[in-house]
């Protein structure tokens, strides 16, 4: 029988600056807060801007939102030295027994930043249509192998001359069938799809059948024996 976990699931949210990581967290909080015990850890380039934004959005008890300063090393803080993020998560778990899900937002970084599997159990990589239709094709570990790829702000696609459906399609192709969701906060169906994915992943985690995968900073490769 699989071992069932004793702590909250940790879900990382990575992706370039401005793609909507904080908004996604706000969305998840507002949609899931009645059903789940939630906590949030933000990683900012500059102090606690994202944490402040989320706190002022009123979607979650402000004390359940913790900010980690990264010393201008957002990539390090989620990958090679996860100490301060781990401490922030452990503090949330200590302060809120029964916590079920901790959302960890990476500081906006580049396409190569992914979470260490020692820090999060699953991760979402967020792109947006405004970043350009070709970003998916550029690839990177997060795009190719995060547990979920979100193509955000699909409602803006006509204004930036991007074919959102094609972006999702190319993402799916680049990900060997791993899930991709085109998201617009104005499209309730897409919002529900993201929430459903989070809840399904959490159910799998709680059942002890979820395995943390490392998207890895490197291109996939194999060693011949």
């Amino acid at each position: 029988m699989p071992e069932t976990p004793t702590r909250a699931m940790r879900l990382g949210i990575a992706g370039p600056v401005g793609t909507g990581k904080s908004s996604l967290i706000g969305l998840l909080c507002s949609r899931l807060t009645d059903r789940l015990q939630l906590g949030v850890v933000t990683n900012d380039i500059y102090t606690d801007e994202d944490a402040r934004l989320l706190r002022s959005a009123g979607v979650l008890d402000p004390d359940r939102i913790r900010a980690v300063e990264t010393g201008a090393c957002p990539h390090t803080a989620i990958r090679d030295d996860i100490t301060m993020n781990s401490i922030a998560i452990e503090d949330l778990e200590r302060d809120y027994p029964g916590l079920q899900l901790v959302l960890v937002e990476s500081g906006g970084d580049n396409l190569t930043a992914t979470f260490s599997p020692a820090l999060v159990d699953a991760q979402i990589f967020v792109l947006d249509v405004a970043g350009g239709g070709d970003v998916v094709r550029k690839g990177g570990p997060g795009i190719a192998r995060a547990d979920l790829l979100i193509v955000n702000k699909t409602d803006l696609a006509p204004y930036v001359d991007v074919d959102a459906a094609r972006m999702v399609q190319e993402g799916t192709a680049a990900r060997d069938g791993r899930p991709v969701i085109g998201l617009s906060r104005l499209d309730t169906k897409s919002v529900s799809a993201v929430c459903d994915w989070v809840l399904a992943t959490l159910a799998s985690y709680d059942a002890g059948t979820h395995t943390a995968h490392d998207p890895g900073p490197m291109a996939a490769h194999s060693h011949t024996q």
């Binding site: 010393g71 090679d80 030295d81 996860i82 100490t83 301060m84």
Partner: peptide, 11 residues
């Protein structure tokens, strides 16, 4: 500094 203790957050 590569020892994982969060040293990169200190100035």
């Amino acid at each position: 500094a590569r020892l994982p203790t969060g040293g990169h957050t200190q100035s």
